[in-house]
Amino acid sequence: MAGSNPNAKPMNLTLKVWRQKNRQTQGNIVDYQVRDISPDMSFLEMLDVLNEDLLRKGEEPVAFDHDCREGICGSCNLFINGRAHGPEPGTTTCQLHMRKFSDGDTITIEPWRAEAFPVNKDLSVDRSAFDRIIQAGGYVSVNTGGVPDANEIPIPKSIADQAFDAATCIGCGACVAACKNASAMLFVSAKVSQLALLPQGQVERKTRVENMIAQMDKEGFGACTNIGSCAAECPVGISLENIAILNREFLAAKATSNNLA
């Protein structure tokens, strides 16, 4: 039952997959063959096929993170043929389709690699460092209730749009995975600039950026050297301009805040 392209031929592929039992053990690449892969399959559906095969043979399926499979939850995180989320620009792994590959291809699949993202198992990594960075200040401190009417503070459309563009970050970690320095600056900058742009974010503007950067450094991420791999691989197109905003915010905060630490 072909989908959109009735002429598409099924493919046979060689997969080189990173297998690693748990955080403590060493991993290695293992070769697998998958057959009759429809070009209309998503990349993860291709892995489903592999896993069902493995399971039927009594072998352990390959662990990988995924959930919504529509490119928004940020769970999926595969390093495919040397690229975060694979070769297609602006695409999460789950939205990558097999028609982008050819019959007979060899595909290497690895987990995100960074000191701050330890491997849980196989292709699944621990990205809780991102959560801790947000916990350090990626919010507006308002309790439920007792807030002003939503239309009380007008926000220029261009500012709201710019904040939205930054806010679309899905927290997948491709920026860290792709970066030569394993820097999380694009991720952090997306949240900092979203809130720095909006009037609601002004009250905590200085402490937010100071605390988030401190946490980012504590987690062991690298420093940005403006290479640009992060933005090039970002599936939702978070722009490098956010990092400039982050730098500016940090500089201004450090120069003018009352924080002596």
Partner: peptide, 30 residues
């Protein structure tokens, strides 16, 4: 910075990495 960044990248590198497809050479080789 180089030391910090190398440590951040971790001991296990990518087996296949095509970073040249997403960034200019000079930026990675400062």
């Amino acid at each position: 910075l180089t030391g910090k960044n190398r440590a951040a990248r971790g001991s296990q590198g990518y087996v296949v990495n095509h970073i040249e497809q997403n960034s200019p050479w000079q930026s990675r080789n400062m």
